[in-house]
Design a protein around this nucleic acid. Structure first.
Length: 829
RNA sequence: GCCGAAGUGGCGGAAUGGCAGACGCGACGGUCUCAAAAACCGUUGGCCGGCAACGGUCAUGUGGGUUCGACUCCCACCUUCGGCACCA
């Protein structure tokens, strides 16, 4: 940037040019020295807890982080200016797979990589000029944080919300290690290219399904409809019945198989039965002659992803096990198959095959020549061979004593009968599964459990927390967790009897860490408890949460679950963690996809910040488009935001010839612009419509610039009102330049502690409006009409117009539509 | 495949039942300059007519529908993005 001064004929010389680099660093230091953004717990103003999702410590702060945080900061600053005591904390989500990958690659401890990233990212975050209260920072991988994450695990275990069961994970047979979904590429290990398959391990789970029904209730929050819809569908509540089919296989102890169905009324149409390949009974009931085929099929299924298996497009496959089950309703024996379209994780892992009334079952029956028996005389069904499955409609047929029961009564009738006869019961099933939290990895909070030969599974006593990660972890290139071969970590003594014992080597899913961090920010130094109950009462729930839409389901459901569990354990007194939610869209990388380190498409903003300054970059990101929609990152437009700030700088500092009594007309116009803009900006900023807010600010700046350059003079009071308002309403968006201008205007420090300006709606309103006149929907003329002109006047003026007359002449006027201040439409025939 | 969203000038977008293209980028022309950059001013959806002011007409992913009027509401389809439970 040149320090050279511009001298033009038209414009007065500027004392100094806008130099963001000088003013941004200066004010950041001043704010920090003055503790301007430290939030007190004792402030008498009403509280406002604004929270933005904490970043993962992936390396450098990228555009995606700026896109998430700069607008949140603007919203928080606005809230502060409207009279709230605003808490806006920041921290780091610091456990996880990428740190381990870096550790293996660099032969270092993951802590080294992680904490170096924390340092760097904190510095980069500070350049944004956000109002984060850094005294409250939390880092989930630091022992004084994960101590409490472990404490939460113990509490959930104590209240029977944690348990152990077998569940499948990807397993690389060559590296002898568990793989994350991300590490499986086209069915192979990303490290060694060996084909991988699922394998069952004992793992810890949280009983989130206990709260399935309550999690469907959004009445206590203001969340976007689409997020509610996604969570509702994810939870997937289905009413139906669990029915018991008889099993009589020699040498098999079990005498029944339970199946969940949403259509118990079609039970007489069952012609086959399917178990998921992972179902424990498959191996047991398979007859010797079918064993090889079944095993081969099950092995193949273990190599497939759930997404592949859920596709309704692929050809149905399956194998017959050789066994039969008995339909309790009609005593009919039907063959038991295993097929990959049945998932072990949904319902009971079994499906009763009713090909006439379920399309997937229909496809399967067609593929393998199984019987198809319709049990409803659906109005679309003519009686011949079925070409597709039929849903609801008609009344029951081929169903014994139920024949003739109409569709609407069928389900309750069959369920009632099943309950009377002991064939099953009406029940509700959820797609939601319990939350698996065990990770066979080193860089996470160790699960605080000890295994003792004598006492079994023993929770680590609270006084022994945290269970620390070893500092001398040695990573083998296989990716196996070092905890499994670290003798110092592994060997311990039983807290009950003192016998030699071994520690759990699995660590907690990182989503556990981020399920309660909003509670730690309010009391981050507390070493007695995870948080103070009094402070929780004061600050929570979070008033406004924001973050990427990629977290619409998992993180946001997990943390809601934690809150409800905490309430039931008597730790907090509210039901939901986040009263209001805003999900910003994705800022897309050059490949058109979400920016993330693992995709390798991140762009660092540093060079742009260096060139244009943080204010310009913040304004540019907010101007790009609607925040909830995201969009492609293209730096070519940044100069527009920079030019705008230059115009703001010049118009505020440039001076104008003022008079104490400017023309009444001009003064009125100036005040109208000022109040109209305050109104628009207030409305937009409070609804996160930052792009149109900035457009309005640009228009206002352009207007003031024209006014100033016209040299016509302006009313002194109205002009100072205009400039003062401008600086105040840009302050949340571009905090540094606003502070600098505020000071140069001779106003008291700080602009950020000023009151947001109010607007006078009557001053903001125009007294005349241009109204288009349409004939049959096409604009033919425009009229200047007084505000809220009566219909008769508008109609007369419209019909008097020369342009309109051409199109109306000689035709019959069928109707005149008049929308005051919007339009007149003359409908002719 | 399933769930959620989005498709509008050369580009980002505005308008959510009432003037399509606000605001900005880019491009083009100009001022300043030896020159360039920066800055500033002006023009800028397509087509047709006109020297021109201007007028006409088409146009919001595709096809249909509702309405005096549809970017906006409804139905079907296409494409792209986010998520799909161990990336976070």
């Amino acid at each position: 940037m040149s320090e050279q001064q511009t001298q033009t004929k038209r414009r007065p010389p500027q004392a100094e040019r806008y130099d963001p680099r000088a003013i941004e660093a200066k004010w950041q230091q001043r704010w920090e020295a003055d503790r301007l953004y430290e939030t007190s717990d004792d402030d008498p103003r009403p509280k406002w807890y604004a929270l933005t999702m904490l970043p993962y410590t992936s390396g450098d702060l990228h555009i995606g982080h700026w896109y998430a945080m700069a607008p949140s900061d603007t919203a928080a600053r606005y809230k502060r200016m409207t009279g709230y005591n605003v808490l806006f904390p920041m921290g780091f989500d610091a456990f996880g797979l990428p740190a381990e990958n870096a550790a293996i690659k660099n032969q270092t401890h993951p802590a080294e990589w992680t904490f170096a990233n924390v340092e760097r990212m904190r510095g980069q975050l500070k350049m944004m000029g956000a109002m984060f209260d850094w005294r409250r920072e939390v880092v989930t991988a630091s022992p004084d944080y994960y101590k409490w994450t472990q404490w939460w695990f113990l509490k959930l275990l104590e209240h029977d919300l944690a348990y152990k069961k077998k569940a499948s994970v990807w397993w690389c047979p060559n590296d002898q290690t568990v793989l994350a979904n991300e590490q499986v590429v086209d069915g192979r290990c990303e490290r060694c290219d060996t084909p991988v398959a699922k394998r069952d391990l004992e793992q810890w789970f949280f009983r989130i399904t206990n709260y399935a029904d309550e999690l469907l209730d959004f009445s206590k929050m203001q969340w976007p409809e689409q997020i509610q819809a996604m969570q509702r569908n994810w939870i997937g509540r289905s009413e139906g019945a669990e029915l018991r089919f008889g099993l009589d296989v020699p040498g098999v102890a079990t005498s029944e198989v339970r199946v969940f169905t949403t259509r118990p009324d079609t039970v007489y149409g069952v012609t086959f039965f399917v178990l998921a390949p992972e179902h424990p009974l498959v191996e047991e009931i398979t007859t010797p002659d079918r064993r090889d085929a079944v095993r081969a099929y099950v092995d193949a299924a273990r190599r497939e992803t759930e997404i592949e298996r859920m596709s309704t497009e692929r050809e149905k496959t399956g194998v017959f096990t050789g066994a039969y089950v008995t339909n309790p309703f009609n005593g009919k024996q039907v063959p038991v198959w295993t097929a990959d379209y049945v998932l072990a994780t949904y319902g009971t892992g079994a499906v009763m095959g009713v090909p006439a009334h379920d399309q997937r079952d229909f496809d399967f029956a067609k593929e393998y020549g199984l019987d198809i028996i319709p049990v409803f005389d659906h109005p679309d069904y003519g009686g011949g061979e079925l070409t597709q499955a039929f849903g609801h409609g008609g009344s029951m047929i081929n169903s014994g004593l139920f024949d003739g029961t109409p569709d609407a009564e069928a389900i309750p009738a069959v369920v009632k009968y099943a309950e009377q006869q002991g064939f099953g019961r009406g029940t509700v099933n959820y797609r939601l599964r319990d939350w698996g939290i065990s990770r066979q990895r080193m860089w996470g909070a160790p699960i605080p459990i000890i295994y003792c030969e004598t006492h079994g599974v023993v929770p680590v006593p609270e006084r022994d927390l945290p269970v620390l990660l070893p500092e001398d972890a040695e990573f083998r290139p296989t990716g196996e967790s070092p905890l499994t071969y670290h003798e110092g970590f592994l060997n311990t003594t039983c807290p009950i009897g003192g016998e030699p014992a071994r520690r759990e080597t699995d660590t907690l899913d990182t989503f556990v860490c981020s399920s309660w961090y909003q509670l730690r920010y309010i009391d981050p130094q507390n070493d007695e408890r995870p948080f103070s109950r009094d402070l929780a009462r004061k600050w929570l729930p979070v008033d406004q949460y924001s973050g990427g839409s990629e977290h619409a389901v998992m993180h946001l459901l997990y943390t809601r679950f934690f809150t409800k569990a905490a309430r039931d354990m008597g730790m907090v007194e509210f039901d939901e963690p986040f009263t209001r939610l805003f999900n910003q869209g994705q800022i897309l990388g050059p490949d058109g996809q979400r920016m993330s380190k693992s995709r390798g498409n991140v762009i660092a903003p540093d060079s742009q910040i260096d060139r244009w300054g943080a204010d310009t970059f913040r304004a540019y990101l907010m101007f790009l488009g609607p925040w909830d929609e995201g969009g492609p990152y293209d730096p070519s437009g940044i100069s527009g935001a920079y030019r705008w700030l230059n115009r703001v700088w010049n118009v505020v500092l440039g001076g104008i010839e003022t008079t104490s009594a400017g023309g009444a007309q001009e003064t009125r116009a100036l005040r109208r612009w000022t109040h109209k803009t305050i109104k628009k900006v207030t409305e937009d900023i409070s609804h996160f419509r930052f792009n149109t807010m900035i457009a309005a600010l640009m228009e206002y700046t352009n207007y003031l610039t024209r006014l100033r350059e016209a040299g016509a003079g302006a009313d002194a009071t109205a002009w100072s009102e205009a400039l003062e308002s401008l600086v105040l309403i840009i302050a949340p968006t571009v905090p540094h330049i606003a502070e600098e201008l505020w000071q140069r205007m001779g106003k008291p420090y700080s602009v950020h502690t000023q009151r947001w300006p109010s607007f006078d709606a009557s001053l903001a309103a125009a007294d005349e409006v241009e109204v288009p006149v349409q004939v049959n929907g096409k604009v033919r003329d425009r009229l200047m009409l007084p505000l809220d002109a009566p219909e008769a006047d508008a109609r007369d003026q419209a019909l008097a117009s020369e342009h309109v007359r051409q199109y109306v002449e000689g035709k019959e006027i069928a109707r005149v539509v008049y929308v005051p201040n919007r339009l007149i439409n003359i409908v002719v025939r």
